[in-house]
Each structure stands twice: as C-alpha cells, then as structure tokens.
C-alpha cells in the first residue's frame, strides 16, 4: 500500500533541512509502529519520498510525502498515529491511499504559492509599488545568478526566471511592511525561491526591500496544469 500525506512545517521547525525532515519522519514511523516497507540491501531504510525541498527558513502548510507500507492501514489511523508523535509545527493535515501508478509528488506538484512579508526601505509615498511590480512582470527577462554545485566547485549561472513566475502581486502595505503573494515554479524544470524573487525586485525596480526582514510561508501547491 502507498499513502500520500500532506503536512505542515511551521514555527522554528522551518529551519529543519530536507534531510533532517526525512530523519524525523523515519524515527516517527518507528515510534508510532507504522508498518513501513523497507528497502532491500546493506542499509535498509523506509521507502519514503518527499516533494521538492522547501528552502530553509520558509514555513509551509502544504508539504507532501509518499510512503510505502507492508500492510494496509487506514489513512485516518495513519494520520492520528503520526500526529501523536510529531513535534508541534509538523502536522499531518491530510492523508489518503494512492495507487502504484500515481506520479511522484515532485513531478506533479511543481507550482508553489507563497505569502511574503517584507520591510521596505523606501520612505513615504516615494513610489507606487503596484506599478513597479507590474513593470517588473512586463519584462521579458528577469535574470538572476544561481549558484550550483558541480562536483566540488561552485559555479554561477545566469537564469531568466520570468517564465517561472506565474503571479506576483502586492496584497497590501501596512506601515513599511509589504505583503506579497506569488506563484512560482518549484522543481527541476525551473525553480524560484522567494528570496530570489525579492532580490530581483531590488535589482529591477525602484523598490528597495530589506532582505533581512523577509518572512515567507508556502500556502498552496499546484500541478503543472494549473494556470495562476
């Protein structure tokens, strides 16, 4: 049996890395006596696969994992058992059986919607944020530098992220804090992190954001077909 679970990553636990999270889940399966299927071989480990890694320091209410089991268990029981063990901040909000042929999470859920709070360094009514963002979206190219690891060395490549931005809007402005909403691509075909988006705003518009101040939360994930 294969089960898919939707979970949250909130509070300080947003600082757990992808690997930390996998280790946490594996320990939690053991502790909650969930009949996990193990891989064969020298060092058996649970057949668990997570979606695309969430950037460190960003909260989410919509992360997913798939897990293979050796015997069936009701999705409700699965959820309840795990939630008893999982720390506050990481909670299974939904779980359901899927069949073997269901495409993987990382290949299907590749659009992410984020809510971002960030302080602006611009003073007063100096600029029109709505206009600036619209102008940014009017650009054909929004180039950012991406650092990649190639073997042991790090290389920098220039990537145009404009095709991967499906939505970017100013929701409201409260004092010097701006609330943004965005839908961007995540995954191997294209990936935009919230911080990269903010850097692009600083580079390409008159808006000057205090990048140290940003807080982001992933609020929804969508499939490839979704058009934001």
């Amino acid at each position: 049996m294969k089960i898919r679970a939707k979970y949250t990553k909130l509070g300080y636990l947003k600082y757990l890395s992808h690997l930390d999270l996998i280790r946490l889940f594996n320990r939690s399966f053991t502790r909650s006596n969930i009949p996990v299927k193990y891989s064969e071989g020298f060092n058996p480990h649970p057949k668990l696969s997570l979606g695309n890694p969430l950037p460190l320091g960003i909260e989410s209410v919509c992360e997913y994992f798939d897990l293979e089991l050796i015997e069936p268990i009701s999705p409700q029981e699965f959820k309840n058992k795990l939630n008893e063990i999982l720390p506050t901040g990481i909670e299974i909000v939904e779980s359901y059986g899927i069949d073997e042929m269901t495409p993987s999470i990382s290949s299907t859920m590749c659009k992410s919607e984020y809510e971002i709070l960030v302080d602006t360094l611009n003073s007063g009514d100096e600029i029109d944020y709505y206009l600036e963002i619209n102008e940014l979206l009017g650009l054909k190219n929004i180039d950012i530098e991406k650092k990649k690891k190639k073997g042991k060395s790090k290389i920098t490549t220039i990537v145009n992220i404009r095709p991967f931005i499906f939505k970017l809007s100013v929701e409201n402005i409260c004092g010097n804090t701006i609330r943004l909403n965005t839908i961007v691509m995540t995954g191997e075909q294209g990936n935009v992190k919230p911080i990269e988006l903010l850097e692009a705003i600083n580079k390409n518009t008159k808006i000057r954001l205090d990048l140290d101040s940003f807080e982001a939360k992933k609020i929804e994930t969508y499939s490839q077909e979704f058009e934001g």
Binding site: Y12, L13, S17, D20, R27, G57, P87, E215
Partner: peptide, 18 residues
Amino acid sequence: DKVLKKVEKPARYIGLEE
C-alpha cells in the same frame, strides 16, 4: 529569526527536539 536565516545549520539553535 532574522539571525537564523543567515547562519549555517540554524537548527543548532532552535531547540524543540523530541
């Protein structure tokens, strides 16, 4: 929170472990 976004392995400083 601001500081944790800038350091290596921020989970060293958050506590909240099982």
